[in-house]
Amino acid sequence: MHILISSAYPLSSPKGNSITAKRIAKLLTQAGHAAQAINTDMPPPADAMIALHATKTLAASKRFKVNSPNRKLIIYLTGTDIYREQTNNNPEFKEALILADALVVSQRASLASIPSEFQDKSHFVPASVLLPPLKKVSSPPSPSLALIGHLRSVKNPFLMNKALKELDGLKLDVFTLGAALEPNMLHEVHNWQQADSRFHWLNDVPYTKALSWIQQVDFTLNTSHSEGGSNAVAESIVLGTPVLASKIEGNVGMLGDDYLGYFEPNNASSLARLIHLAVTDYSFHQNLLQQITDLQQNFLPEKETAGWLKLLR
């Protein structure tokens, strides 16, 4: 089959959608299909198209159905689709769901968030991680913690800094890897750097280097208000680094109900208590490491490949 995987962003972008599109293309190519990741509103005819982000790839989806009217359009719903576009009653979100032959989410729990009239064409396909060769980085001082992700409001990136204010005197180095994608974020990140010498903003970091950072630090952090299924969380699990995560549906779907490393969303005090426990309690750290190790089997590429092949058949 000739299969297109449509990303809303340029394929050279470090955004999660682009990484996911290239991963799916590679998996399906390895399975024997002619799979191609694209970023265009004018996709060529094909046997099937997987569109990442219902609203941002809507123009490409509509063009695909015109060019290939009897071929399968699969829309891979992101966290932004489910938790923002749907909540805001964006008419383009519903238009995309009507247009799609199948809908996919990367977290089983997210199926319940899809409107009832579309449940019969909704499916769960587990996300996996394909690790490229890593670009080595110098080991950061220990203890250390890294937030991997571009600075956007939905990611709530400065909750970490507010938590640090409650941890005055705790030996810790904290790193944020990601570009400031909103104008106010650039001003704010500079202010936080001046306010606390433990905080280091590394700006945009190449993907392979960011993966090495994940592997080198003691903990990674996810502070998102909402998330469909963070690539950085999955990568942290596969690389064996414990995650400190906001207890939201997307994170719980990846880490499990019984995971020990949760804090209350948008609660700096809750995060501060968790950081203090993780950094100072060796037994707690070891328990997190064991839980992360146990989760690694959930992110095997063959599981994701099997899910896509079943759906495409």
Rank of each mutant, 00 (worst) to 15 (best):
L177F: 04
A180Y: 02
M160W: 00
D168R: 13
V129K: 05
A146R: 13
L151N: 03
R152K: 15
P183E: 12
K155M: 13
W192E: 05
N161D: 06
F175P: 01
W192P: 11
A195W: 01
P157E: 05
M160H: 12
K162N: 06
A100T: 04
Q107I: 14
L103K: 02
L131E: 02
V174T: 12
L99E: 10
P132W: 05
S106D: 15
G149L: 11
E188C: 00
A96E: 10
P143M: 13
H123M: 10
W192H: 01
K155W: 02
L134V: 09
A179I: 04
D168S: 15
S113M: 08
N191S: 13
H200Y: 01
K165G: 00
S106P: 08
W192R: 02
G169N: 08
K165Q: 15
F124T: 05
N156M: 05
A127G: 15
S116L: 00
S128K: 01
Q193W: 02
T176F: 03
N161A: 05
A96I: 05
L130D: 09
L130I: 13
W192M: 03
V104H: 15
K121S: 03
P143D: 10
E117C: 00
R108D: 11
E182T: 06
L177C: 10
D101R: 05
K94D: 15
A179G: 08
H150Q: 15
Q194H: 11
L167G: 03
E95H: 14
Q107V: 08
S139C: 00
V174L: 07
P143C: 05
E117R: 08
L145Q: 04
L145M: 14
K171R: 14
L151K: 09
